[in-house]
């Protein structure tokens, strides 16, 4: 069954068109991530799904119900925000219970659901505290708990990890992945961070400038990007784009090669360049080569490699790891 269906959803603020016709289907139990650069309309799309913003055109279905005219509280959704958005004057417990109280749920049931959510998120000892007395990670767990107790058919997350520090981000990411498995709930998650998208998603939707660039599983996007935008956005460090004529690729104007698919040699290779900078990350090493013909090239090699900046080096790629793009930036299928 489909959990969410968008049909040609558009949105304009005044004269500015922010979303240009979004079509999307999300299946039951799927973890779908909207990813794209800041300002591309991810949050706007999520708010339209939540009912916090009216679409300028198109249809939103949750389950099989058309919900364009349904208020947020009646859509069977729950949302977690980047800024936590906890009610500052309520205790953790009341924060979680408020939505159920509004819906007229019996007190015993509220108690049970809050208890279940708080033990799931190990929040039991904080139930009486105010949000101000919690750390950032705890606050976000409360916000997630507030979403869980509503037992929604659709979870919406808007950059829930962006305000957390790196270590907490990994922990909370694992927590969200675990919740997705345990609740087998449908989740729609917005982020600008492609690492989050790659690690959590069943299905990634890459957005750019209010349009969907590509929809696919993380590995599909990595291995078969539909265009230069997706190729550049997914993968870190970013894919190298080189003018095609320099390497004699017929038909393509640009070729792309991921840093991890380049090998480095001191003697010979496809591209010659001077090493301008080298980064040692322990497990692997990033090398930045300034080439005469194609500008800066990034290479990522496994393990520890030592070269002095200024050294002349050669980078080469296996042909099966080359991506070819036409003048419009679309991927040319391999022959």
């Amino acid at each position: 069954m489909t959990a969410l269906r968008l049909e040609n959803v558009t949105k304009a603020f005044g004269g500015t068109q922010v979303l240009h016709g979004i079509d999307l289907t999300v299946e039951d139990g799927e973890f779908v991530i909207f990813v794209g650069p800041s300002g591309c309309g991810k949050s706007t799309l999520l708010r339209i799904i939540a009912g916090l913003e009216d679409a300028s055109g198109g249809k939103v279905f949750i389950g099989d119900q058309l919900v364009n005219a349904t208020p947020p509280a009646k859509r069977g959704i729950a949302m977690v925000f980047q800024t936590y958005a906890l009610y500052p004057h309520l205790s953790v417990k009341d924060n979680m219970a408020l939505g159920l109280k509004q819906a007229g749920t019996p007190a015993a049931e509220i108690e049970a659901r809050v208890g279940k959510a708080s033990s799931m998120l190990s929040l039991d000892q904080y139930l009486k505290r105010r949000p101000a007395e919690l750390s950032g990670g705890q606050r976000q767990r409360v916000a997630i708990g507030r979403a869980i107790v509503r037992e929604p058919t659709l979870f919406l997350f808007d950059e829930p990890l962006s305000n957390l520090d790196a270590a907490l981000r990994v922990n909370t990411r694992l927590e969200i992945a675990r919740l997705h498995r345990e609740l087998s709930a449908t989740m729609v998650y917005v982020t600008h961070d492609q690492v989050e998208a790659m690690t959590l998603a069943d299905k990634i939707v890459v957005l750019n400038g209010g349009r969907i660039e590509q929809v696919g599983s993380p590995m599909e996007l990595y291995n078969k990007p539909a265009n230069m935008f997706v190729a550049g956005f997914i993968g870190s460090p970013q894919m190298n784009f080189l003018p095609a004529d320099t390497s004699g690729q017929g038909g393509a104007t640009t070729i792309g090669v991921r840093p991890e698919h380049l090998s480095i040699s001191t003697e010979a290779g496809d591209w010659a360049g001077r090493l301008v900078h080298i980064e040692h990350l322990g497990a692997d090493t990033n090398l930045y080569l300034e080439t005469k013909a194609s500008g800066l090239i990034t290479a990522r090699v496994f393990g520890e490699v030592h070269h002095a900046p200024g050294t002349e080096l050669f980078a080469s790629a296996e042909p099966r790891h080359l991506y070819r793009f036409d003048a419009e930036g679309r991927t040319i299928a391999a022959v």
Binding site: R47, A50, G51, L52, P71, P72, A73, K74, I77, A78, M79, F81, Q82, T83, Y84, A85, L86, Y87, L98, G99, Q102, A103, R146, D158
Partner: peptide, 14 residues
């Protein structure tokens, strides 16, 4: 006042 807070309230049915 944070928009997220007001929106959280709307989702909770306030």
């Amino acid at each position: 006042v944070s928009d997220d807070l007001k929106n959280a309230g709307r989702i909770d049915g306030l």
